[in-house]
C-alpha cells in the first residue's frame, strides 16, 4: 500500500516554464522518504500539486489510495504539509494559529486545544503559546509550521526544507521528533538541501532534476554507487614527501596530513592494517566530504 502514488505528473506554468515533465513516484506507507534536487528542480511544484496549492497540467496523484481528482478533500485530510515559507499570520498568538489550523481540518475546539498543548510542549514552545508569532525566532516559527502540519494527525507528512536556517541543536531535536512520529506510523517525505539530513533519516530517496526523476532507489543502494571515497589521515610523525600506500592512491601530502582515496573495490579494514600507516602513528582518520553530497552533485551535473 502506498502513501503517495504519482503517475505521469506534468506541470507547465502560465509563463511556459515546464516544471514537471511527467514524473512517476511511489512512496510506501511508513516510509521516511527523501525527495532531493537542486533549486528549481520541481520539488516544490510536486508538493504544491499534492497539497492543492498548484494546479497540475496532467497526470494522476493518489494520497493514501485516494485520487485527488475524485475526492481531494478526503485526500487532503490524510496529508500534512510543512511549506518552505512561513505561511501564518504573524500578528496572531501562537496558540490561536495552531487551534485555528486544527479547526480548518474539522477538529473540534476541545481536541484542538489538547493536541496544541501536546505538540507545543513536545517542541518546546508551550511557554510561547500566548506570544504573537512575529515575536518568535526563525527556529521557533519553523516549529510552529511543523505543529500546524501535525495538528490533525495526518497519515502522510510532507516537509519542504523544514530545517532551513535552524541551528544544529534544534535541527537534531527536530530529527528526533520526526523519527519518533515515523516510528509511530506516519509516512514522511522530506526535501532538504542538507544531504547529511537525508542520509541520516531517510530509507528511500528520489532525486529530481529539470522536472524529471533521475534516481529513485533505497538510500543504501544509492550510497553503494559511490566509486571513490576520500579519507583525510592525520599523523603524529611527519609524512615523507614521497609517501605512498600500495593499492591506495595518496594525495595532498603536507607535514602531518595526507589524503587517501578508497576505491569501491577496496576495504577500509585493509587500509587500517597497512604497516605504512602504523609507522606514522595515525592520530585521526575522517571522511573528507559527505558521501551523498558527492553523489548528488555527480548525478545532477550529469543532467546539465
Amino acid at each position: 500500500m502506498y502513501a503517495l502514488e504519482i503517475k505521469d505528473l506534468k506541470k507547465t506554468y502560465s509563463n511556459k516554464v515546464e516544471a514537471l515533465k511527467g514524473i512517476d513516484l511511489n512512496v510506501s506507507k511508513g516510509d521516511f522518504f527523501a525527495l532531493l534536487g537542486p533549486n528549481g528542480a520541481g520539488k516544490s511544484t510536486v508538493i504544491g500539486i499534492i497539497s492543492s496549492l498548484v494546479n497540475k497540467s496532467s497526470g494522476h496523484v493518489k494520497v493514501c489510495g485516494i485520487d485527488i481528482d475524485e475526492n481531494f478533500s478526503l485526500a487532503k485530510s490524510k496529508l500534512g504539509v510543512v511549506n518552505q515559507e512561513f505561511n501564518f499570520s504573524q500578528f496572531e498568538k501562537v496558540i490561536d494559529i495552531i487551534v485555528t489550523q486544527a479547526g480548518y481540518y474539522g477538529v473540534d475546539y476541545k481536541t484542538a486545544v489538547e493536541r496544541a498543548e501536546k505538540y507545543l510542549k513536545k517542541l518546546g514552545l508551550w511557554d510561547k503559546r500566548n506570544d504573537q508569532a512575529r515575536m518568535l525566532s526563525g527556529g521557533q516559527k519553523r516549529r510552529i509550521m511543523i505543529i500546524k502540519a501535525m495538528i490533525h494527525e495526518p497519515e502522510l507528512l510532507i516537509l519542504d526544507e523544514p530545517t532551513a536556517g535552524v541551528d544544529i541543536e534544534l535541527r537534531r531535536s527536530l530529527w528526533d521528533f520526526l523519527l519518533e512520529i515515523n516510528q509511530q506510523g506516519t509516512t514522511i517525505i522530506l526535501t532538504t538541501h542538507y544531504l547529511e539530513e537525508a542520509e541520516n533519516l531517510c530509507r528511500n530517496i528520489a532525486i529530481i532534476d529539470g522536472g524529471d526523476i533521475i534516481e529513485n532507489t533505497s538510500m543504501n543502494s544509492l550510497l553503494k554507487q559511490i566509486d571513490d571515497q576520500v579519507f583525510i589521515v592525520e599523523t603524529e610523525k611527519v609524512v615523507p614527501k614521497d609517501f605512498s600506500l600500495p593499492g591506495y592512491p595518496v594525495q595532498d601530502i603536507s607535514e602531518n596530513k595526507f589524503s587517501v582515496i578508497l576505491k569501491k573495490n577496496k576495504n577500509l579494514n585493509d587500509l587500517f592494517k597497512a604497516q605504512e600507516l602504523e609507522d606514522l602513528n595515525v592520530k585521526n582518520i575522517r571522511n573528507q566530504t559527505n558521501r551523498l553530497e558527492e553523489l548528488f552533485v555527480k548525478l545532477t551535473s550529469k543532467n546539465e
Binding site: 481531494f72 505561511n87 501564518f88 489550523q101 480548518y104 481540518y105
Partner: peptide
C-alpha cells in the same frame, strides 16, 4: 491580506470546501 501573508495556504491545504 491572507494572500499577501501566504496564510491562504493554511486554508487551501485543508480539506475545507
Amino acid at each position: 491580506g491572507t494572500k499577501f501573508q501566504k496564510s491562504i495556504e493554511e486554508i487551501l491545504v485543508s480539506p475545507m470546501p
